[in-house]
Nucleic acid binder design. Structure first.
Length: 483
RNA sequence: GCCCCCGUCGUCUAACGGUUAGGACGCGGCCCUUUCAAGGCCGAAACACGAGUUCGAUUCUCGUCGGGGGCACCA
């Protein structure tokens, strides 16, 4: 069987972490089995769907590297990127199958207004009954229908749900889950606007697009029996279902905006690497038999399987994501890191002047320290901005009795050093300390503070080499003035 | 209220009847070291509870409790 998966978001907001995880799992499963991954925008919510949301979803998937393999006919260029499918462009397709169901007597017009239904639900709640449609329009006579029609009354279309027996969802992750049919209701498949509802369009598209595996969030498990009845009514074999456990916020509730950053694009802006987010997301609700946690791009694809998917919900942990992001940054070649950091450097107004150290050399000095790209500017900016002392540098490193003399002496020694290289600088400074009877730290700490303004930072002598003789000496002199 | 799902360290998880219950993040300690990191080593930290089944249950069954999701002309 050809493996085909899909991600089917509704464009009613940004792509959030949960949606991204769903997209990722579908993508991984398709890639693993050399199948196809389809993107379908479920924009049948005419009120809440927006263009901006569509764009945000596409941008997010693109950034995460989750590419899809096809699109509607008119977008089939020789190569990707394809446009996604849009359900609102497929209304005539749904109409065809609606007609089929009506012809077969498996669906019916419902003339109930929103107010009627609200009242029905209110009453049900009052009497502690399940809030279920009472099927009052199911057996309307032709006379009654004609009456409503001539009165210009709008109608929706409902699906006739069988009211006995059980529907079993055979889920790849959860096993067999059974639902009593009499608890399902005659759900609306076409709204009064003529637009199909989710459960209807979804079934038709999954079938027509030959989706083999529907991998989606747990919140859809309870929709599945209704959809299964629809597959049956249309005479189709359903796809395989796999319902992923939810992603929870730190408080144990479904992850949402109130938990802080949940939009994929926010993570991009906060300096996360797409590979790291992908890797971390894969581990939310999935694990290998040996609990491996760092995966290369190819490894993730080849290791992924449904068996490793978790039944219980996972709590999103920003701390572990951040650690993992640091791991990814450490593994990046510096040249890639510079590229990735560029937008953040721009934002911070950091631009090397002629003669100042290259970004590459400056950034590589503390390569192992960055956990997020957003941290880079403030850790390299001392190379590119006028020297600024932190209070700690002033108090801890520059307050000793001999500091002034040390800085004065060092500025002379560095000025006169034949080769301005890390090794030579270190040798000269150590020799100076020894000559004057200072302990190494007594000299190193003021030196660091004088050239960088900080008490922490890169390895000292390489930093000075990178800075260059002229600038380093200049700073040593200026620092003497400050003290 | 009804239906469904879930329950191993704080968090992500491994285990698929017999283990000193393993790994990772985080946390603590030590080492390395001019600083901060990174790295190395060590440590504290979990089977929700109660009944069964079994020679033996974290693992199988039932119940309790706890958490989550769903019950729309939203997806």
């Amino acid at each position: 069987m050809k493996i085909r998966t899909r991600f089917a978001p509704s464009p009613t907001g940004f792509l959030h972490i949960g949606g991204a995880r769903t997209a990722l799992f579908n993508w991984l499963f398709a890639r693993k089995h050399k199948g196809s991954f389809v993107l379908r925008i479920e924009d049948t919510d005419e009120v809440r769907s927006t263009e901006d949301s569509v764009q945000a979803i596409l941008d997010s998937l693109h950034w995460l590297g989750l590419n899809w393999d096809e699109g509607p006919k008119d977008s089939l260029l020789s190569e990707g990127p394809y446009k996604p499918y849009f359900q609102m462009q497929r209304l005539d397709i749904y109409k065809k199958f609606l007609d089929q169901l009506m012809r077969d007597g498996k669906a019916y017009r419902c003339y109930c207004s929103k107010e009627d239904l609200d009242e029905m639900r209110r009453l049900a709640a009052l009497e502690k009954r399940p809030p279920r449609y009472d099927r009052r329009c199911r057996n309307l006579t032709d006379q009654e229908k004609k009456g409503y029609d001539s009165a210009g009354k709008k109608y929706s279309i409902r699906f006739k749900m069988p009211d006995s027996g059980t529907t079993v969802v055979d889920d790849l992750i959860r096993g067999k889950v059974s639902f009593e049919n009499n608890l399902l209701q005659d759900f609306v498949i076409i709204k009064t606007s003529g637009v199909p509802t989710y459960n209807f369009a979804c079934v038709i598209d999954d079938h027509l697009m030959e989706i083999s595996h529907v991998i989606r969030g747990d919140e859809h498990l309870s929709n599945t029996p209704s959809q299964l009845r629809l597959y049956e009514a249309l005479g189709w074999a359903p796809p395989v279902f796999a319902h992923l456990s939810m992603i929870l916020g730190p408080d144990g509730a479904k992850l949402s905006k109130r938990h802080g950053a949940t939009s994929v694009l926010e993570y991009k802006n906060e300096g996360f690497i797409p590979g790291a987010l992908r890797n971390y997301l894969a581990l939310l609700g999935w694990a290998t038999k040996n609990s491996q946690d760092l995966f290369s791009y190819d490894e993730l694809i080849s290791s992924f399987d449904i068996e490793g998917c978790q039944k219980n919900p996972a709590t999103f942990d920003n701390v572990k994501l951040t650690w993992m992001n640091g791991e990814y940054i450490r593994k990046m070649p510096v040249s890639d890191l510079v590229l990735a950091a560029q937008p953040f450097l721009d934002r911070a107004g950091i631009k090397p002047a002629p003669g100042s150290p290259s970004l590459e050399s400056a950034i590589s000095l503390e390569h192992q320290k960055y956990k997020k790209l957003t941290e880079i500017p403030s850790l390299v900016d001392f190379f590119y901005k006028p020297l600024e002392m932190t209070p700690q540098a002033r108090e801890k490193s520059l307050s000793g009795p001999d500091v002034l003399r040390i800085l004065e002496d060092l500025s002379v020694r560095l000025q006169d050093l034949p080769a301005f290289k890390e090794k030579e600088i270190e040798a000269a400074v150590r020799q100076y300390a020894q000559e004057k009877g200072f302990k190494a730290g007594q000299v190193f700490h003021p030196l660091r503070a004088a050239v960088s303004g900080r008490t922490d930072g890169p390895t000292l002598f390489l930093m000075i080499e990178v800075m260059g003789r002229e600038e380093a000496v200049k700073r040593l002199r200026r620092c003497q003035g400050i003290i």
